[in-house]
Amino acid sequence: MPRALITGASSGIGAEFARQLAPQGYDLVLTARSQDPLDHLAATLRQDQGIEVDVIPLDLTQANAPTQLYQQTSDRQLQIDLLINNAGFGDYGDFAESDRSKLLAMVQLNITALTDLTYQFLQPMRSRQSGTILNIGSIGGFQPIPYLALYAATKAFVLSFSEALWAENKDMGIKVMAICPGPTATGFNDVAGFPKTDAASPSPGLAPVEAVVSEALNAMKRDRGSAVVGGWANHLITSLPRLLPRDTLAQIIGEQFRPKAPTSD
């Protein structure tokens, strides 16, 4: 049976990838910071689907964690056929007023850990001349987003990096793809710090996580370096940089995302 490694698998998109891959015959390796939800998900999938599920709790914001993860899969002789680099988070607000440690942790997780895991797991895939790497990007990677400035920049990296690796590896039997969802019904907004009553997102509503992951897995079958998922509005949003000057687009988006002044009673 093929085996998939999913980072950020304790909730949201990562957990849904596990739930949808299990009935497709994948054994799984699940990793995230929180062990209890990983253990619960693993036990459910073992019982319901009869698959092997390994749990490796790690904090990928720590510099040595990607090597630890690769080493643990090697020590357990777990061949990874599908790597899903899903772990990541955002931070909403004025960049200059944001928490510096949170910003640097975002870069470590969204870029450095993803790069390191891609590099390490790509080596055995090249030796076998088979394997797939899905890097979870965002429609935010297609244009600058004031007040989500660093997050959007990290996802621009994911998009460019993945498309380049797709071209480098496509003739070696290896797929590399950036999956780019829009606003999705996960805990992203809470972690990013969006105010509960704030309507900063330019996209109306949140796409169901089940639909986003199903579309991503269908996209994985195609020979492309990236795929926008989560509905027609996301395709429209990612087309805007081709229609408007980038500085104009940044100003428009900035007005939509600008934190609203508190109102007095």
Results as ranks from 00 to 15, higher is better:
2 P>R: 10
6 I>Y: 00
13 I>V: 08
19 R>W: 11
19 R>N: 13
22 A>Q: 10
22 A>Y: 10
24 Q>M: 11
24 Q>N: 05
29 V>S: 08
29 V>D: 05
37 P>E: 12
40 H>P: 00
43 A>L: 12
44 T>A: 15
45 L>Q: 12
49 Q>W: 06
54 D>L: 02
56 I>N: 10
56 I>V: 14
56 I>K: 07
67 T>L: 13
72 Q>N: 09
77 Q>P: 12
79 Q>G: 13
80 I>M: 03
85 N>G: 01
89 F>C: 11
89 F>S: 04
90 G>D: 12
97 E>G: 10
98 S>I: 09
100 R>K: 07
103 L>H: 11
103 L>R: 09
105 A>N: 15
110 N>Y: 07
111 I>Q: 09
115 T>N: 02
118 T>N: 02
120 Q>M: 10
124 P>G: 02
125 M>D: 00
126 R>N: 05
129 Q>R: 12
133 I>Y: 01
136 I>Y: 00
138 S>F: 08
143 Q>P: 03
143 Q>E: 01
149 A>T: 15
150 L>I: 15
151 Y>I: 14
155 K>V: 03
156 A>C: 10
157 F>M: 02
158 V>P: 05
158 V>I: 09
160 S>K: 12
160 S>F: 05
164 A>N: 04
164 A>Q: 05
166 W>Q: 05
169 N>H: 13
170 K>I: 02
170 K>G: 03
170 K>Q: 13
171 D>Q: 10
173 G>T: 08
174 I>S: 01
180 C>E: 02
184 T>H: 02
185 A>R: 08
186 T>S: 13
189 N>V: 04
191 V>P: 06
192 A>I: 13
198 D>T: 05
198 D>I: 01
203 S>G: 03
206 L>H: 03
206 L>Y: 02
206 L>W: 03
206 L>I: 03
207 A>Q: 11
212 V>D: 08
213 V>Q: 08
219 A>N: 01
224 R>N: 06
225 G>K: 00
227 A>F: 07
242 R>E: 14
244 L>W: 11
246 R>Y: 15
256 Q>S: 04
258 R>A: 10
259 P>R: 00
262 P>G: 02
